[in-house]
Write a protein that binds this DNA or RNA. Structure first.
Lengths: 158, 158
DNA sequence: AAATACTGTGCAAATATATGCACTTATTAA
DNA sequence: TTAATAAGTGCATATATTTGCACAGTATTT
């Protein structure tokens, strides 16, 4: 049943990139990606992902990922992270991020702060971060997650 | 019909002080304060107040006031505000805050940013801020609102 | 002052979301 | 490997939230 992970990731991608205000709406969007499920499952997924529903001028209420509040400093931290990022490789299910010297702790902390379920934890040295992915999470999933956290990475990875 | 304001204030008070996870529940709490309304009205109130529903470990989902996120810089601004605050007095329905020299603009901006419905607007000089409360809002209400914005004020006021 | 427009609210019905139960598929234990 | 347990999901239903409509009380316009 490895599809669950795929679905959860898709949900996160959708919610972080557009304003969605109901589970039915989200259901349709998933369907367009070839993911067919029921509203009941979605309800459970959203709870699992701790997705919030917040006030929005346009659409009344929309779903929002947790810890996504646009903190002023946050954006700075992200572009800083993107700047320090050098590469990512995988070995034995583990991810290894190389950074410019000194950047590892701050980038790792950014990841930890986001606390994605795909990543069980991180260990940071000075210029290296060890990423411990959740079981059944693929390399691609980890990379997609990192891109969600630091959008600028999209151009630097893969 | 001045009760609406009272109800809105009560809702904010309740939500900011305890975990509420449904409108029915909130309805009961209001009833205990002698405020009897229907769930439909509450639904409209919550939308008006831009109350969000966020994930909570204990109760699944609970209501949360907007702009309550702990923005790093925000806390700094708050403690700075608390430091500059000297006193508050009321006259002719208007509130007058005295601050240390130069503090008025930043404190006023903090209040404006929060944009509480109890306060129609503020005017800041160098060490004085004029608070223009909404009709039917009491002095106590204004003070409570200020405390919501700057919790540290609890010890400095009244 | 009468006519008109707006606000706040309840009621009932429409939408939206959560959940108990049953069933299937994966995981763990023996 | 087989039995026992847990995880994932749909279906139908329960629960929760929103909204159209009507109406009463205010405020505004003429």
């Amino acid at each position: 049943m490895g599809n669950r992970t795929e679905r959860l990731l898709a949900i996160r991608n959708i919610i972080s990139s557009q304003k969605v205000s109901s589970q039915e709406e989200l259901l349709d969007l998933l369907e367009k990606k070839g993911l067919n499920y029921t509203q009941a499952t979605l309800s459970r997924d959203l709870k699992f992902l701790k997705v919030n529903k917040i006030s929005d001028v346009e659409k009344g209420y929309i779903y929002e990922l947790p810890d996504q509040h646009h903190i002023p400093g946050q954006e700075l931290a992200e572009s800083y992270a993107a700047q320090g990022f050098v590469s990512i490789q995988f070995a034995n299910k583990l991810g290894v991020i190389r950074t410019l010297p000194g950047y590892a702790p701050s980038i790792a902390s950014l990841i930890d702060k986001f606390n994605p379920f795909e990543i069980v934890g991180t260990l940071a040295g000075d210029d290296t971060i060890l990423i411990i992915p959740h079981d059944n999470v693929t390399e691609r999933d980890v990379i997609n997650t990192l891109i969600i956290i630091v959008p600028e990475l999209k151009n630097k990875i893969k």
